[in-house]
Write a protein that binds this DNA or RNA. Sequence first.
DNA 1: ACAATCCTTTGACAATTATCAAAAACTAAA
DNA 2: TTTAGTTTTTGATAATTGTCAAAGGATTGT
Lengths: 189, 189
Amino acid sequence: MVRNPFIETVRQFTPLSPTSESALFSELHRLEFGKGHVLVPPDTICRSIYFIETGLTRTFYYKDGKDITDWLSAEGQFAVSISSFITQQPDRRSVELLEPSVLWSISHSALEKLYQQHHELERMGRLLANYGLLLVQQRFDELHFATALERYRTLMTQNPTFVQRVPLSMVASYLGMTPETLSRMRAQI
Amino acid sequence: MVRNPFIETVRQFTPLSPTSESALFSELHRLEFGKGHVLVPPDTICRSIYFIETGLTRTFYYKDGKDITDWLSAEGQFAVSISSFITQQPDRRSVELLEPSVLWSISHSALEKLYQQHHELERMGRLLANYGLLLVQQRFDELHFATALERYRTLMTQNPTFVQRVPLSMVASYLGMTPETLSRMRAQI
DNA sequence: ACAATCCTTTGACAATTATCAAAAACTAAA
DNA sequence: TTTAGTTTTTGATAATTGTCAAAGGATTGT
């Protein structure tokens, strides 16, 4: 029974045999980086997925010269440039640390190999993809027809720590608004 | 070698052995319904996923009394209330036919059984979930920081038939704007 | 502690998009 | 074909959000 935060999170999705667990564990790498470290540079292939033991990351890209925060992940969550990881093609999205972090990474190629060898791990991969789908769909719904104030309120109930830990200019683009608009939503309580 | 549009599409994601193919095929049901037929009523559990051989479907829900088109699917694509299907919990999203359609359905429980029995099919499920993730992410990006005109233009290049086949009021909410705004975007060419 | 920088807020104004109303265009049934 | 109903377009106006500029706060390094 491996004791590792990545594995323990994965177990909540599907039970794993000791064989699968140790095979998975043997491909994990523990990483420690400081604030500002770039996990995935822009226009490169995202070759690993990162589980956050402690710390905070953001995925972002530039559109028309503007810095757009696409995703935020904290402890217990995954950080990845999702479309690049799935397609193994370069993507404009970049991933960086907003706080010094302890991460567990596994490479795309190692995962592919594990998927081939262990049906259980293939299932884990499917369930993690399903989970990701739910998360993206939730954010999609928010943007679809919620006002700036509604989106801020949802964030305050679902991820209040982001507002404390992430610069507001990044929270603003995460929510699909300008920093000025976010500041005004906050003033409205 | 099964000849079936669902199976042929799935083969493009991953190769399937004859055994897996016939196991999958044996769980498929061919369905034919007229325009307006409701595949998934609102606030019910979406128990099947539907592959469209011919026809057109939309997923929609009501927010503040307004009808919002969440997703459109045509021949060669899948129709499903995605979060309900994944969680097997009720969801406000409803799925209906916009044209008379020929569909191939498979139930969630049959899929679960097949996933258990055939590693290859579990892989297929994982790859289909990955594909869905890419699609939702693309639409998320659009809404995040593209203007109404940009969103209309993207639709015209990526799915021009939707504009011809779907009532414009539904295309408008699909794109996250009012019918009046869509009409004005169209007038601007 | 202090400067230098960066982040956030505030204000004035502009652009985008929504709302409401009515006219025009289209569709379907008799 | 004509009519009744629905959808789409157009117009006037309002609400929301963005842009630009400047002031106020906070943070960091020396």
